[in-house]
Amino acid sequence: MYRFLLSRQWVILTLIALLLMPVMVKLGYWQLHRHERRVANNHLISDNLRAKAVPVESLTRPGAVVPKRQLYRTVTATGRYDTAHEVVARQRTAGDGDSIGYHVITPLVLADGRSVLVNRGWIAAGTDLTKFPKIPAAPSGEVTVTGRLRPDETTAATGIRNRSGLPDRMIMLINSGLMAKDLPAAERPVGGYIELAATTPKPSGRQPQLIPEPDHSSIGMHMGYAIQWWLFTAMVPVGWVILVRRERRERLAARDAAAEDGAARPAAAAVASP
Protein backbone atom coordinates (compact mmCIF):
# COMPACT_ATOMS: atom_id res chain seq x y z
CA MET A 1 0.00 0.00 0.00
CA TYR A 2 2.99 2.35 -0.18
CA ARG A 3 3.41 2.03 -3.93
CA PHE A 4 1.65 5.38 -4.28
CA LEU A 5 4.94 6.97 -3.15
CA LEU A 6 6.25 6.22 -6.64
CA SER A 7 3.56 8.37 -8.23
CA ARG A 8 4.60 11.67 -9.82
CA GLN A 9 2.73 13.70 -7.22
CA TRP A 10 4.46 12.03 -4.29
CA VAL A 11 7.89 12.04 -5.89
CA ILE A 12 7.61 15.81 -6.43
CA LEU A 13 6.32 16.34 -2.88
CA THR A 14 9.17 14.28 -1.41
CA LEU A 15 11.79 16.13 -3.45
CA ILE A 16 10.39 19.47 -2.30
CA ALA A 17 10.57 18.31 1.32
CA LEU A 18 14.16 17.13 0.88
CA LEU A 19 15.07 20.49 -0.68
CA LEU A 20 13.36 22.57 1.99
CA MET A 21 15.15 20.94 4.90
CA PRO A 22 18.76 22.01 4.12
CA VAL A 23 17.52 25.43 2.99
CA MET A 24 15.77 26.03 6.33
CA VAL A 25 18.76 24.72 8.26
CA LYS A 26 20.94 27.22 6.40
CA LEU A 27 18.47 30.04 7.10
CA GLY A 28 18.59 29.13 10.79
CA TYR A 29 22.38 29.38 10.84
CA TRP A 30 22.16 32.69 8.94
CA GLN A 31 19.98 34.11 11.72
CA LEU A 32 22.27 32.60 14.36
CA HIS A 33 25.29 34.33 12.83
CA ARG A 34 23.37 37.61 12.72
CA HIS A 35 22.63 37.16 16.43
CA GLU A 36 26.29 36.50 17.18
CA ARG A 37 27.37 39.58 15.20
CA ARG A 38 24.78 41.70 17.03
CA VAL A 39 25.99 40.50 20.42
CA ALA A 40 29.65 41.06 19.48
CA ASN A 41 28.84 44.54 18.15
CA ASN A 42 26.99 45.40 21.36
CA HIS A 43 29.98 44.29 23.45
CA LEU A 44 32.31 46.34 21.25
CA ILE A 45 30.19 49.49 21.60
CA SER A 46 29.80 48.99 25.35
CA ASP A 47 33.54 48.52 25.85
CA ASN A 48 34.40 51.54 23.71
CA LEU A 49 31.90 53.77 25.51
CA ARG A 50 33.33 52.79 28.90
CA ALA A 51 36.96 53.04 27.80
CA LYS A 52 39.13 55.86 29.05
CA ALA A 53 39.03 58.82 26.68
CA VAL A 54 42.04 59.26 24.40
CA PRO A 55 42.98 62.15 22.07
CA VAL A 56 41.28 61.76 18.72
CA GLU A 57 44.63 62.38 16.97
CA SER A 58 45.91 59.11 18.40
CA LEU A 59 43.26 57.08 16.55
CA THR A 60 42.88 58.80 13.20
CA ARG A 61 44.55 61.14 10.76
CA PRO A 62 43.63 62.99 7.54
CA GLY A 63 42.40 60.54 4.94
CA ALA A 64 42.22 57.64 7.40
CA VAL A 65 39.27 55.26 7.66
CA VAL A 66 38.06 54.71 11.21
CA PRO A 67 38.20 50.93 11.77
CA LYS A 68 35.21 49.09 13.17
CA ARG A 69 37.10 48.22 16.35
CA GLN A 70 37.12 51.96 17.21
CA LEU A 71 33.39 52.42 16.67
CA TYR A 72 32.00 54.79 19.32
CA ARG A 73 35.40 54.95 21.05
CA THR A 74 35.44 57.75 23.63
CA VAL A 75 37.81 60.47 22.43
CA THR A 76 38.76 64.05 23.28
CA ALA A 77 39.91 66.99 21.18
CA THR A 78 41.10 70.45 22.18
CA GLY A 79 40.92 73.44 19.87
CA ARG A 80 38.82 76.29 18.55
CA TYR A 81 35.65 76.00 16.51
CA ASP A 82 35.77 77.23 12.91
CA THR A 83 32.17 78.46 12.69
CA ALA A 84 32.79 80.06 9.29
CA HIS A 85 32.78 76.57 7.80
CA GLU A 86 29.94 75.18 9.88
CA VAL A 87 27.39 73.10 7.96
CA VAL A 88 24.24 71.14 8.69
CA ALA A 89 23.44 67.55 7.70
CA ARG A 90 19.91 67.30 6.40
CA GLN A 91 17.07 64.91 7.29
CA ARG A 92 18.34 63.81 10.68
CA THR A 93 16.13 62.38 13.41
CA ALA A 94 16.02 63.79 16.92
CA GLY A 95 16.47 61.70 20.04
CA ASP A 96 12.71 61.12 20.20
CA GLY A 97 12.98 59.11 16.99
CA ASP A 98 10.26 61.12 15.26
CA SER A 99 11.23 64.76 14.72
CA ILE A 100 13.23 65.50 11.56
CA GLY A 101 15.80 68.27 11.48
CA TYR A 102 19.53 68.89 11.07
CA HIS A 103 22.77 67.79 12.68
CA VAL A 104 25.13 70.69 13.24
CA ILE A 105 28.64 69.90 11.98
CA THR A 106 31.40 72.30 13.05
CA PRO A 107 35.14 71.84 12.38
CA LEU A 108 37.29 72.07 15.50
CA VAL A 109 40.79 73.33 14.66
CA LEU A 110 43.43 71.51 16.69
CA ALA A 111 46.72 72.90 17.99
CA ASP A 112 48.69 71.56 15.01
CA GLY A 113 46.36 73.24 12.52
CA ARG A 114 44.48 70.13 11.50
CA SER A 115 40.78 69.87 12.27
CA VAL A 116 38.22 67.32 13.35
CA LEU A 117 34.55 67.46 12.47
CA VAL A 118 32.30 67.68 15.52
CA ASN A 119 28.64 66.77 15.36
CA ARG A 120 27.37 69.24 17.96
CA GLY A 121 23.86 67.80 17.97
CA TRP A 122 20.36 68.15 16.55
CA ILE A 123 18.26 71.22 15.77
CA ALA A 124 14.77 71.51 14.36
CA ALA A 125 14.44 72.02 10.62
CA GLY A 126 12.23 75.08 10.76
CA THR A 127 9.82 76.10 8.02
CA ASP A 128 12.18 77.05 5.17
CA LEU A 129 14.30 74.10 4.07
CA THR A 130 16.00 76.14 1.36
CA LYS A 131 17.83 78.45 3.76
CA PHE A 132 20.63 77.80 6.22
CA PRO A 133 18.96 77.56 9.64
CA LYS A 134 19.69 79.67 12.67
CA ILE A 135 22.14 77.66 14.79
CA PRO A 136 22.99 78.07 18.48
CA ALA A 137 26.42 79.65 18.59
CA ALA A 138 29.36 77.35 19.19
CA PRO A 139 31.51 78.15 22.26
CA SER A 140 34.21 80.71 21.52
CA GLY A 141 37.83 80.36 22.56
CA GLU A 142 39.64 77.13 23.26
CA VAL A 143 37.48 74.22 24.33
CA THR A 144 37.95 70.53 24.99
CA VAL A 145 35.26 68.29 23.62
CA THR A 146 34.56 64.71 24.62
CA GLY A 147 32.54 62.44 22.40
CA ARG A 148 32.19 59.25 20.45
CA LEU A 149 34.35 58.54 17.40
CA ARG A 150 32.30 57.76 14.30
CA PRO A 151 33.45 56.70 10.82
CA ASP A 152 32.80 58.89 7.80
CA GLU A 153 29.34 58.35 6.43
CA THR A 154 28.97 56.81 2.98
CA THR A 155 25.94 55.92 0.91
CA ALA A 156 26.87 52.23 1.07
CA ALA A 157 27.05 52.24 4.88
CA THR A 158 24.09 54.51 5.67
CA GLY A 159 21.76 54.26 2.71
CA ILE A 160 21.73 58.07 2.52
CA ARG A 161 22.08 59.20 -1.08
CA ASN A 162 24.45 62.09 -1.58
CA ARG A 163 22.96 64.93 -3.59
CA SER A 164 24.32 67.90 -5.44
CA GLY A 165 22.66 71.30 -5.73
CA LEU A 166 21.76 71.56 -2.04
CA PRO A 167 21.31 74.96 -0.45
CA ASP A 168 24.50 76.63 0.72
CA ARG A 169 26.22 74.98 3.72
CA MET A 170 23.93 71.96 3.70
CA ILE A 171 25.16 68.38 3.28
CA MET A 172 23.66 64.90 3.14
CA LEU A 173 26.64 62.85 4.39
CA ILE A 174 28.94 63.65 7.31
CA ASN A 175 32.18 62.83 5.56
CA SER A 176 35.57 64.39 6.29
CA GLY A 177 36.83 63.70 2.77
CA LEU A 178 33.92 65.53 1.18
CA MET A 179 34.12 68.45 3.61
CA ALA A 180 37.88 68.81 3.15
CA LYS A 181 37.19 70.31 -0.28
CA ASP A 182 35.56 73.34 1.34
CA LEU A 183 38.01 73.81 4.24
CA PRO A 184 41.28 75.76 4.18
CA ALA A 185 44.21 73.57 3.15
CA ALA A 186 45.78 73.93 6.60
CA GLU A 187 42.64 72.55 8.26
CA ARG A 188 42.84 69.08 6.74
CA PRO A 189 40.25 67.14 8.76
CA VAL A 190 41.14 63.81 10.28
CA GLY A 191 39.13 60.81 9.16
CA GLY A 192 35.77 60.29 10.81
CA TYR A 193 34.06 62.70 13.16
CA ILE A 194 33.21 63.18 16.82
CA GLU A 195 29.66 62.81 18.10
CA LEU A 196 29.67 65.37 20.92
CA ALA A 197 28.90 64.26 24.46
CA ALA A 198 30.38 67.05 26.65
CA THR A 199 32.31 70.32 26.40
CA THR A 200 34.80 71.91 28.79
CA PRO A 201 34.34 74.65 29.83
CA LYS A 202 30.62 74.11 29.80
CA PRO A 203 29.05 76.42 27.20
CA SER A 204 26.55 79.05 28.23
CA GLY A 205 23.30 79.60 26.41
CA ARG A 206 21.27 77.29 24.25
CA GLN A 207 23.09 74.52 22.40
CA PRO A 208 21.99 71.87 19.89
CA GLN A 209 20.32 68.80 21.36
CA LEU A 210 23.04 66.25 22.08
CA ILE A 211 22.73 62.91 20.30
CA PRO A 212 22.00 60.11 22.80
CA GLU A 213 24.31 57.15 23.17
CA PRO A 214 23.56 54.27 20.82
CA ASP A 215 21.38 51.48 22.16
CA HIS A 216 23.72 48.57 22.77
CA SER A 217 21.45 46.46 24.93
CA SER A 218 19.01 45.04 22.39
CA ILE A 219 19.94 41.79 20.67
CA GLY A 220 16.92 41.65 18.38
CA MET A 221 14.94 38.56 17.42
CA HIS A 222 17.59 36.76 15.38
CA MET A 223 18.04 33.88 17.83
CA GLY A 224 14.28 33.35 17.95
CA TYR A 225 14.13 33.33 14.16
CA ALA A 226 16.96 30.78 14.05
CA ILE A 227 15.07 28.45 16.40
CA GLN A 228 11.91 28.89 14.32
CA TRP A 229 13.70 27.86 11.12
CA TRP A 230 15.10 24.77 12.81
CA LEU A 231 11.67 23.87 14.19
CA PHE A 232 10.25 24.23 10.69
CA THR A 233 13.01 21.89 9.49
CA ALA A 234 11.98 19.26 12.04
CA MET A 235 8.32 19.66 11.08
CA VAL A 236 8.96 18.80 7.42
CA PRO A 237 9.63 15.04 7.91
CA VAL A 238 6.92 14.87 10.57
CA GLY A 239 4.45 16.45 8.19
CA TRP A 240 5.59 14.14 5.38
CA VAL A 241 4.96 11.06 7.55
CA ILE A 242 1.54 12.35 8.57
CA LEU A 243 0.57 12.91 4.94
CA VAL A 244 1.83 9.46 3.94
CA ARG A 245 -0.14 7.74 6.71
CA ARG A 246 -3.28 9.69 5.84
CA GLU A 247 -2.90 8.82 2.16
CA ARG A 248 -2.42 5.13 3.07
CA ARG A 249 -5.46 5.20 5.36
CA GLU A 250 -7.62 6.77 2.66
CA ARG A 251 -6.46 4.25 0.07
CA LEU A 252 -7.17 1.31 2.42
CA ALA A 253 -10.60 2.71 3.15
CA ALA A 254 -11.28 3.10 -0.56
CA ARG A 255 -10.09 -0.48 -1.22
CA ASP A 256 -12.27 -1.90 1.56
CA ALA A 257 -15.26 0.06 0.31
CA ALA A 258 -14.68 -1.25 -3.19
CA ALA A 259 -14.40 -4.81 -1.88
CA GLU A 260 -17.63 -4.50 0.10
CA ASP A 261 -19.37 -3.04 -2.93
CA GLY A 262 -18.06 -5.87 -5.08
CA ALA A 263 -19.33 -8.50 -2.61
CA ALA A 264 -22.73 -6.85 -2.31
CA ARG A 265 -23.45 -6.88 -6.04
CA PRO A 266 -23.52 -10.77 -6.47
CA ALA A 267 -25.68 -11.10 -3.38
CA ALA A 268 -28.12 -8.54 -4.69
CA ALA A 269 -28.17 -10.27 -8.04
CA ALA A 270 -28.93 -13.63 -6.39
CA VAL A 271 -31.83 -12.21 -4.45
CA ALA A 272 -33.25 -10.66 -7.57
CA SER A 273 -33.14 -13.99 -9.50
CA PRO A 274 -36.47 -16.01 -9.64
Rank of each mutant, 00 (worst) to 15 (best):
M1L: 13
Y2K: 01
R3A: 14
R8H: 10
V11A: 11
V11N: 04
L13W: 11
A17P: 03
L20R: 08
M24K: 07
K26G: 10
L27S: 12
G28C: 10
A40D: 13
L44G: 05
D47S: 12
D47H: 11
R50H: 09
R50A: 15
R50E: 11
K52C: 00
K52Y: 00
E57D: 13
L59W: 09
T60A: 11
T60W: 05
G63F: 08
V66I: 13
K68S: 14
K68A: 15
Q70Y: 15
L71S: 09
R73Q: 06
V75F: 09
T76D: 05
T78R: 14
R80G: 04
D82C: 05
H85V: 14
A89E: 08
R92S: 09
D96K: 02
V104W: 05
I105F: 07
A111V: 07
G113F: 09
S115K: 01
V116A: 06
R120N: 01
W122C: 00
A124N: 05
A125N: 08
T127H: 13
L129Q: 07
T130S: 14
K131C: 05
F132Q: 02
P133V: 11
K134L: 09
E142P: 03
V143R: 04
T144C: 03
T146Q: 08
T158P: 01
N162L: 05
R163W: 08
G165K: 01
P167G: 05
D168W: 02
M170V: 04
M170H: 05
I171G: 00
L173R: 06
L173M: 08
S176N: 03
G177Q: 12
L178D: 14
A180C: 07
A180G: 05
D182A: 15
D182L: 08
A185L: 12
R188P: 00
G192I: 01
T199R: 04
P201Q: 10
K202H: 12
S204V: 15
G205P: 07
G205L: 12
Q207R: 06
L210A: 10
L210V: 02
L210M: 08
I211G: 00
E213I: 07
E213P: 01
H216C: 10
S217Y: 13
I219P: 01
I219V: 15
I219Y: 13
M221G: 08
M223L: 15
M223K: 09
M223A: 14
A226H: 11
Q228W: 10
W229Y: 14
P237N: 10
W240C: 02
R249S: 14
R251F: 03
A253T: 09
D261I: 03
G262T: 10
A263F: 11
A264I: 04
A264G: 02
A264F: 02
P266K: 04
V271C: 01
